[in-house]
Computed example of a mutant assay.
Amino acid sequence: MSDNIYKDYEAPSTGGVFLALEDNKPTKLRIASAPYIFQDLYKNKETGEERLSVRYAWVVINLTVPIEPVAQILRLPVTGFKNLQAFAADDEYGDPQGYGITITRKGTGKQTEYAIVPSPKAIPLTDEQKVLAGSVDLVGAIKNAIPLVDAHNGKPLPKPGADDESTAAVAPDQQRDRISTEADMMREIDLSDIPF
């Protein structure tokens, strides 16, 4: 440990509504909702080609946050879903809402892997955790998400960015690849649009 607190201290990440899994860092969480499914628009950074990819989402209680647990939305691609599904379909584990999991993301892009380890203890969500989970609006955050059970029963997946109310543009943290034009940056701001 040095005499410089700025070198030694790592500020805790309380995240936002979306859980960002850090590379090679195990994250303990509790799944607090049924799974949802949605399509996300993926843009290949090298070719510029756009395609739709299927993703899954759950409301979770993030137990890794050092101050206190936080309710967030976990989003996983098909590979991550299949890892979780293997435990959920196993009678020894069952519904992942009944136990904790530790998830570790390794790699980026097509080389991303998800390691999921279930907790050996089945502990129900506390009343406080249920209240926290109830405060997260998954469908409000990912407007084109539908319950997985609905998709399984034949309901088509809405496309991201469609104009009707049942779908929405790509989630805010997925919009970082969009580039503002100079006109966007130079436009006047209407002070009545600022919510304060």
Rank of each mutant, 00 (worst) to 15 (best):
D95W: 15
G80I: 07
D95A: 08
G154H: 11
I103K: 04
D164S: 14
A20C: 05
E46W: 09
T126N: 03
L148M: 06
P120G: 05
D137P: 02
N44D: 15
K121C: 01
G16P: 00
I61L: 05
A20E: 13
A89I: 04
E10A: 00
E46D: 13
E10G: 00
Y56H: 15
I123Q: 09
I189Q: 05
P124W: 06
S192Y: 00
Q174N: 13
T104M: 10
L125T: 02
D190L: 01
D23V: 07
Y56Q: 05
P118T: 06
A141I: 01
A57F: 07
K25S: 14
D190W: 00
K25F: 09
E113V: 15
K43D: 03
P120D: 10
Q175N: 13
S13F: 07
S192V: 01
T112F: 08
I194F: 14
T126C: 06
N44R: 03
S53K: 14
K43E: 12
A171Y: 06
P156E: 12
R178W: 11
P118M: 04
V60L: 03
D90G: 04
A71G: 09
E22H: 11
L138W: 01
Y42F: 10
E113I: 14
D184R: 06
S166K: 14
R30F: 08
N4Y: 08
R105D: 02
V139T: 03
S53I: 15
L52N: 04
V131I: 14
E10L: 07
P172Q: 10
A133C: 04
L191G: 06
I179D: 10
S119C: 08
L157Y: 07
G80E: 02
L84G: 06
P156F: 07
M185I: 09
V139I: 02
D23S: 10
A168D: 14
D193P: 03
Q129Y: 01
L125A: 02
L29E: 06
G48M: 01
Q129K: 00
K159M: 08
E50W: 00
S33D: 08
L52A: 01
K28R: 15
V136P: 07
